[in-house]
Write a protein that binds this DNA or RNA. Structure first.
Length: 498
RNA sequence: GGCGCUAUCGUCUAGGGGUUAGGACGGAUGGUUCUCAGCCAUCAGACCGGGGUUCGAAUCCCCGUAGCGCUACCA
């Protein structure tokens, strides 16, 4: 079958789901799983289902549900069905378990957790591999029913049949487990609540999920689930297990590595498009060296078969680079909208920036000048301050290097003299444009037997307070003649106080 | 311990019997220049080890080794 034919078969109703448990924020691993499900669904014009697995009432919180939804929304990963809450389907899960029990595919187990724990520990201490020993399998069904009816606590276990279990993983290829290593799975706890594997399989059957795309850490759950599909006489879905996202130490990415929540990255000033692109590249490559891609390009190129099997280290430096690329591509007016909260927090956002008008046009020009040197959104709020406000400090290292710097600059007095001369020149230069101001500064330097840099560096400190900025003449024109002259005044006064 | 998964530059990866093993991030050097960034150019940098199969193996097979994951009445 050719690729197109395969695609057509797959496309006959692809249904995938992202099934996070709401016990924390949406971490980057979860986001990447959601992303791949989304990409696969879009690629095959299928359905993307969001299912919240909130059956662990101890740890599940509504706050968690909110942040997960918020994270998905930020990344623009929308779902077609749901969100469904697994806790609403408990009765269906229970019915499946009871059906299996009735059919003799399961049995009641009266072993207490404490008892089990003791036996497990004893086995481990003796260096023996532990697996539930099926002690209760020997209890006749009638007796078990009577004891359970009489109030004795019991769990429902699934009786694992003998024989090999195999599936053709879409990313790992053929994978097999020997049922001998799988213990009889608990389906229903002694309080009657269903366990993860049961709920998961039951829901996936009910929701007619065709492809289960999830993290590698679920590989060992898969044989159990395959068994459950068989027992339920339902066709199992295709499985695709994604490589884990690792920290720099090659261990599964976790909080101790720093930021792991997607909303943290948002708050650090990453663009959702950059994050989306970066996450997609973690464990997947369309080949041909393609890296920076639009969602549409990623969707068109996405194939589960191209997913890697090796865990991928989350490289913040590359994320930052990608982010700078996206920032550079962003038109200034969109940029303005994105950094507005940050500017507002710094009290740099004035109401007159809201609508069209000269002031807004000017602000956009400032952002444009700052773009190439910005890696993350907060870089703008920091660098834009001297443009948007007259309140800024001289950076110590800039003062040290360009104002006081002994031999080369001749000391504060010499710098002050040059700035006075420059001030006079700038007061007269017409028009006040980049080429004209540059020509004026250079000829002034020449006439006084100095180097242009002797004027440029102190001027930069005067205008923005730092040793680095965009081209000084761009800055000069953006700041404008009047403010520039005032700032030179301020610098001269500062030099006199040195 | 048992079971499973994995193994190409520091990192993300391309390649899948014959390649100077390619690209990107990061690093280094040089250029542009008023600084930083950017941009441009150049450089350094990898097929885990051992056996097979083959005329030929990074690629296929086996065995090691290492790393990671799972091993709950959590999900």
């Amino acid at each position: 079958m050719g690729d197109q034919a395969v695609d057509q078969v797959i496309s006959a109703g692809v249904r995938v789901r992202f099934a996070p448990s709401p016990t924390g924020f949406l971490h980057v691993g979860g986001a990447r799983t959601a992303l791949f499900n989304w990409l696969f669904a879009r690629r095959h014009a299928g359905t993307f289902i969001l299912r919240i697995e909130d059956t662990d009432t101890e740890r599940s919180t509504e706050e968690s549900v909110r942040t997960i939804l918020e994270g998905l929304a930020w990344l623009s990963i929308g779902w077609d069905e749901g969100p469904f809450f697994q806790s609403r389907n408990l009765e269906t899960h229970r019915a499946l378990a009871l059906r299996l029990l009735e059919q003799g595919k399961g049995y009641l187990c009266f072993c207490s957790p404490a008892d089990l724990d003791a036996r497990r520990k004893a086995a481990e201490a003796a260096g023996l591999p532990w697996k539930y020993d099926r002690a209760c399998l020997a209890v006749p069904a009638e007796e078990a029913a009577r004891r359970h009816g009489g109030g004795e606590p019991a769990v429902v276990r699934f009786r694992v049949p003998d024989g090999p279990i195999a599936w053709d993983d879409l990313v790992h290829g053929p994978t097999t487990f020997d049922s001998a290593v799988i213990e009889d799975i608990i389906l229903l706890r002694s309080n009657g609540s269903p366990t993860y594997n049961l709920s998961c399989v039951s829901d996936d059957i009910e929701m007619r999920v065709t492809h289960v795309i999830r993290g590698d850490d679920h590989i060992s759950n898969t044989p159990k689930q395959v068994l459950l599909y068989r027992a339920a006489e339902a066709a199992p879905p295709r499985f695709a297990h994604l490589p884990l996202i690792l920290g720099p130490d090659k261990k599964r990415l976790s909080k101790r590595h720093g930021a792991v929540s997607v909303t943290e990255y948002r708050d650090q000033g990453y663009l959702p498009e950059a994050m989306f692109n970066f996450l997609a590249l973690l464990g997947w490559s369309p080949g041909e060296g393609r890296e920076k891609m639009t969602r549409e390009e990623m969707t068109a190129a996405f194939r589960l078969e191209d997913i890697n099997r090796k865990g991928a280290v989350f490289d913040e430096q590359k994320l930052e680079w990608l982010n700078s690329q996206y920032i550079n591509d962003l038109p200034a007016d969109l940029l303005a909208a994105m950094i507005r909260p940050a500017l507002g927090a710094e009290r740099l956002w004035a109401p007159d920036l809201e609508e069209g008008g000269a002031r807004r046009t000017w602000v956009l020009a400032v952002l444009e000048a700052l773009k190439a040197r910005s890696k993350r959104l907060p870089d703008f709020a920091r660098d834009a301050r001297p443009f948007l406000s007259d309140e800024f400090d001289y950076r110590p290292e800039a003062v040290e290097k360009h104002l006081k710097g002994g031999g080369k600059s001749g000391g504060p007095a010499a710098v002050a003299a040059r700035m006075r001369a420059l001030q006079e020149t700038l007061a007269r230069v017409e028009p006040f444009t980049e080429p004209a101001t540059e020509a004026a500064l250079r000829s002034l330097a020449e006439s006084r037997g100095d180097k242009p840099a002797d004027y440029i560096h102190p001027l930069r400190v005067a205008l923005v307070g730092t040793a680095v900025s965009p081209s000084i003449f761009t800055v000069l024109v953006l700041i404008g003649r009047e403010r520039a002259l005032t700032r030179i005044d301020r610098l001269v006064r500062f030099l006199e106080s040195c």
